[in-house]
């Protein structure tokens, strides 16, 4: 066996990092991201789709860390995204600060909120966190309508100035490049977190919290960190979306957004952070690009979530990975047979 596998290695000239599967993943997804940038091009409709897809992808990635890895379900994601959006709106109209400050402020505010809500329910079952975050989403929605001096009420905030970059104004195409590269970077980072010791601890705290506690790691604190980071990422998505549209209102991010946030990682596959991104792309493609479902689109989603939960708990990426492994095994088995025959 050993002899066989050494002869099947890549040519010796390449260094180790160039041959690893991780490099392949990173470069492959970068190529896909660049492909999407090229696809969006100068077409306005495609650009809108790309922005929406990027926002959904960040939302899904923000959900992926606390929900799929740490096993805590927060349902205030519509509020986190809206906080990111309104941070851009407020900084962009009421101050002279550069817009990236707004991304930072929005992310910090969302993370702080997520941690406070998580802290109030830290020793209780996950149902309590789900309920209190749902209530927060409802309360935040009425805050957006009610606090007219801050949020502009039902009208929202309009004519937000565009992002400037090294002195020059960034045009729409440039902003798409920036946004999609941010999505790629966040996805790569989260996927690396998943396989880091921290990520492994997170996943263990989801599956066997008692064992992780016994190993000296505080599970509630770990979950709070995941909740905060997730909220910050979702808020960044809202901030970028608002920068692109230059306007935000209470209807921009509605309560049902959280259903998409749960649904996207499940559909794409929970086994990797890229599943969340794939889910986001599919959702945008199904709802906006094809437009076959029209008003019953949300119903189709609801039913699809149930179907995925029942029939395909591993999502699309999970099944693709399984199929690829199966094929590779079949191929290696057929190629190994003659070698083994010769060795005998």
């Amino acid at each position: 066996m050993n002899a066989v596998s050494t002869t099947r290695k890549a040519p010796p000239g390449l260094p180790g990092w160039a041959r690893s599967a991780e490099t392949g993943r990173v470069l492959g997804t970068l190529a896909l991201t660049l492909g999407v940038i090229a696809w969006a091009g100068g077409d306005l409709f495609r650009q809108d789709l790309a922005f929406l897809g990027a926002t959904y992808a960040l939302l899904a990635l923000g959900m992926y860390l606390p929900f799929n890895l740490a096993g805590t379900l927060s349902l205030a994601y519509s509020a986190y995204v809206a906080i990111g959006g309104y941070a851009v709106g407020l900084v962009g109209t009421k101050t002279g600060w550069p817009l990236p400050v707004a991304y930072l402020l929005g992310a910090l505010a969302s993370a702080a909120l997520a941690v406070v809500l998580g802290f109030a329910t830290r020793r209780l079952s996950g149902f309590y966190l789900a309920a209190v975050t749902m209530l927060f989403g409802v309360a935040f929605q009425s805050f957006l309508l009610d606090a007219k001096d801050i949020t502009g009420g039902a009208v929202g905030i309009g004519s937000i100035r565009p992002l400037t970059f090294f002195g020059g104004e960034l045009d729409r195409h440039g902003f798409i490049v920036l946004t999609l590269l941010i999505v790629w970077l966040v996805a790569v980072a989260i996927d690396r977190i998943r396989r880091s010791p921290f990520g492994v601890t997170l996943q263990s705290s989801r599956d066997v919290p008692a064992a992780v506690e016994a190993a000296g790691v505080g599970v509630p604190a770990l979950r709070l960190v995941a909740l905060g980071v997730g909220a910050a990422i979702a808020s960044l998505g809202g901030g970028l979306f608002t920068t692109a549209n230059q306007t935000i209102g209470p209807d921009t991010f509605t309560l049902s957004l959280v259903m998409l946030a749960i649904f996207m990682p499940l559909l794409g596959g929970q086994g990797s952070a890229w599943g969340a991104v794939l889910g986001a792309v599919l959702v945008v493609e199904l709802t906006f690009n094809l437009q076959i479902f029209e008003r019953s689109g949300s119903l189709i989603f609801g039913v699809a979530v149930l179907a995925v939960l029942l029939i395909a708990p591993r999502g699309i990426l999970g099944y693709t990975g399984q199929a690829a492994r199966f094929l590779r095994e079949r191929l290696t088995r057929t190629s190994r047979t003659p070698t083994e025959g010769a060795g005998r």
Binding site: L75, A130, M259, I262, L266, L299, F301, G302, V305, L306
Partner: peptide
């Protein structure tokens, strides 16, 4: 997740 999904699906 299942009951939240049912919530959403029944509503829609």
């Amino acid at each position: 997740i299942a009951v939240v999904a049912v919530l959403f699906a029944v509503e829609q």
